Computed example of a mutant assay.
Amino acid sequence: MKYGEISIDPEVMSGAPVFAGTRVQIQTLFDYIEGGEDLAEFLDDFPSVSKESALAVLEMAKKSLTSEKMLHENFA
């Protein structure tokens, strides 16, 4: 299944969400940010991920975490 820039396929990385067309897990981007790295460092280390894809995923996360409805449905 594809959700914008995110792909989930049991045949790729055991079904973990990845950047579409890559084997780079979405979790890796958040791990970099959590570890204090910036987006440029992530993109340098994972050249198969475009800046546009990374920004789109961050925007998806932003929308999920700033919508009361999404928070209620997913985290209440």
Rank of each mutant, 00 (worst) to 15 (best):
V12A: 06
P47N: 08
T66P: 03
G35Q: 12
I6T: 04
F75Y: 14
K63S: 07
E59C: 07
Q25E: 15
D9Q: 07
F30K: 05
A54H: 04
E34H: 15
D44A: 10
Y32S: 07
L65M: 13
E41Q: 15
I8E: 03
F46I: 09
A56Y: 02
A61W: 02
E68M: 13
A54M: 02
E59S: 07
V12R: 03
L58P: 04
F75P: 01
V12P: 02
V57Q: 00
P17Y: 05
L43I: 11
V24Y: 02
V57H: 00
D44V: 12
E11M: 02
L71S: 01
F46N: 15
S64R: 13
G4K: 03
A16G: 06
L29P: 04
E34V: 13
I33Q: 11
I6D: 02
S53G: 02
S67E: 09
T28F: 03
L43H: 05
M60Q: 12
V57D: 04
M13E: 12
F30A: 11
D31G: 04
N74L: 15
E5I: 02
G35K: 12
E41T: 15
A16D: 07
Y32T: 06
P47Y: 10
M13G: 02
A61D: 05
G21E: 07
E68G: 09
A76G: 13
L65G: 09
A16F: 09
F30S: 06
D38R: 15
A76N: 13
P17S: 03
D9P: 00
F75I: 11
E11C: 01
I33Y: 05
D31S: 14
E5C: 04
L43F: 04
E41D: 13
I6H: 00
V12S: 05
V49K: 03
D38M: 14
G35H: 12
P17C: 05
Y32N: 02
D9G: 00
S67Y: 08
L58K: 04
P17N: 03
A76E: 14
Q25N: 11
K69V: 14
E52V: 15
L65W: 14
V49I: 05
D45R: 13
G36R: 12
G36C: 11
S14G: 00
G35Y: 09
A56Q: 12
K62H: 14
L71C: 06
L39G: 01
P10A: 00
D31F: 12
E11T: 08
G36I: 14
P47G: 08
E52T: 13
T28K: 10
L55V: 09
A16C: 09
L43R: 01
H72W: 07
E73H: 01
E73K: 11
H72C: 07
A16M: 09
Q27Y: 09
M13D: 02
E41A: 14
H72I: 12
S7A: 14
S50F: 00
L43G: 06
L43T: 07
Q27F: 08
T28M: 07
K2W: 01
L58T: 08
D44L: 15
A61T: 02
E11I: 00
L39N: 03
L71W: 05
S53E: 14
D44R: 15
D44H: 10
E73C: 07
I8T: 03
Q25P: 03
I26E: 05
T28I: 08
M1A: 09
E68K: 13
I8K: 00
E37L: 11
L55R: 06
F19I: 10
I6K: 03
A20C: 08
K63D: 10
I6G: 00
S53P: 01
A16R: 13
A56T: 09
